[in-house]
Design a protein around this nucleic acid. Sequence first.
DNA 1: GGAGAAATGTGAATAGTATAACAAGCCTAG
DNA 2: CTAGGCTTGTTATACTATTCACATTTCTCC
Lengths: 208, 208
Amino acid sequence: MGNKAAIPDIVIGRLPIYLRALNRMIQENREYTSSHELGERLGISSAQIRKDLSHFGEFGKQGTGYNVRYLYEQLRQILKVDREWLMAVVGIGDLGRAIAHYRGFQARGFRVAALFDADPAKVGERIGELTVLPMSQLVEEITRQNIRIAMIAVPASEAQSVADKLVEAGVQALLNYAPITITVPPGVRVQYIDPAAHLQHMTYYLTP
Amino acid sequence: MGNKAAIPDIVIGRLPIYLRALNRMIQENREYTSSHELGERLGISSAQIRKDLSHFGEFGKQGTGYNVRYLYEQLRQILKVDREWLMAVVGIGDLGRAIAHYRGFQARGFRVAALFDADPAKVGERIGELTVLPMSQLVEEITRQNIRIAMIAVPASEAQSVADKLVEAGVQALLNYAPITITVPPGVRVQYIDPAAHLQHMTYYLTP
DNA sequence: GGAGAAATGTGAATAGTATAACAAGCCTAG
DNA sequence: CTAGGCTTGTTATACTATTCACATTTCTCC
Ligand SMILES: NC(=O)c1ccc[n+]([C@@H]2O[C@H](COP(=O)([O-])OP(=O)(O)OC[C@H]3O[C@@H](n4cnc5c(N)ncnc54)[C@H](O)[C@@H]3O)[C@@H](O)[C@H]2O)c1
Ligand SMILES: NC(=O)c1ccc[n+]([C@@H]2O[C@H](COP(=O)([O-])OP(=O)(O)OC[C@H]3O[C@@H](n4cnc5c(N)ncnc54)[C@H](O)[C@@H]3O)[C@@H](O)[C@H]2O)c1
């Protein structure tokens, strides 16, 4: 765990998938698993799983495999989701609302803690325990709660300026649902969700 | 374009991103662009963009760059999104509803053409021009409209069985929003959308 | 208690990707 | 018309990722 830079980013990207599978195995009351079984479930070679995990330590036992719960906890620690991260959602349209309602983040280390929208008609609306706040309160509220992650669910034309505001407020990780690549200063992470891009990736392989 | 297998899948995965950027440039009335400019916008090296495109032909002109509209149309053809693909959505909860309402698919080659849910309380509900249908009508309706793409927005526990039904009905491409890896027969493509996985990828890099 | 089966972790070998670098072509300006 | 500055497509090089293969350990079962 010492030298972060030494671990390939692509390996980090697979850990959440392992975590997802392990979580499922816990629900199924499975006590032990193997790289082979995990690989089978995930469509990944067992060698890759062993190699990925070996970057962080020795979690398994020869002849036995991995203790599901132990490996789960180790990966949670590695990914730093053995705690709860607060998140802001900006843009409370159809998608932002679905995200705000979504109960699935909690079990994976996250909680939506603030909602923002530029539309005065939406400001003040209550969703679950939260009230939609105006953009003018963004910096204050994000600072107050020490929120470090935000999800962007505004139209593409607004995404860059919203990202700029969030970064200014101190947010360090952005999950952008708008179909546009945004630019952020070094030190800020961005990930993208673009279903249409995934669909287009698949249509390439479909016969006309 | 002859030998499909020769083009790396990772290259195909970047084409939608290029398309997205080109679309934006069209909106900005830009007539020409260069691999350098595109790379700048997307955070990708210009060499990579040139190399990716060179798999499919020679779209640019030395000294000038790429005609934005021409390259856009070429990529649309390559990805087969110069037409409209019909899609089904299964699971009309918060997320399924947002997807069904979403107007952004149209411009990128897709249209939601059928909605399904297992809950009798949701069946019959109208969303836009569509009525939510019961699962019992899935095969019939997908066959009737010759739908070949589906989006899965049911709970994780249901995703595999829903995928099985869809494949049985003839669907060849699945976009799965449920946080679980699903197994499909060869010839069927699957892509995943898992925001929590993206978030966990980013928290790894955040300081505690 | 020992044989055999199963599974890990890892170094070596293979495969795949990305970057660098440049010849060749195109455009503009004077 | 030509010089100079750009930009492509591509070949060569460097880098990264995946798979292979095996020594080693553990467990089970007779
Ligand atoms: N709905 C989907 O299923 C879906 C799917 C894929 C991608 N997306 C993308 O997600 C984003 C949101 O989609 P949607 O369907 O919810 O759109 P929407 O139009 O319903 O909602 C957008 C919301 O953002 C708010 N907004 C606009 N400008 C803002 C600004 N500058 N600051 C703060 N808030 C602002 C609007 O008031 C509105 O509430 C879009 O970029 C869309 O392309 C949506
Ligand atoms: N809402 C979000 O923002 C969000 C974000 C990420 C992932 N997801 C995932 O997307 C999926 C849907 O999320 P949601 O928030 O819309 O959940 P939801 O519970 O609101 O909706 C699920 C819908 O699926 C239907 N359904 C259940 N079993 C079914 C079956 N066997 N066949 C057909 N329909 C069935 C239910 O009737 C319900 O309408 C979940 O897997 C969730 O984890 C949602």
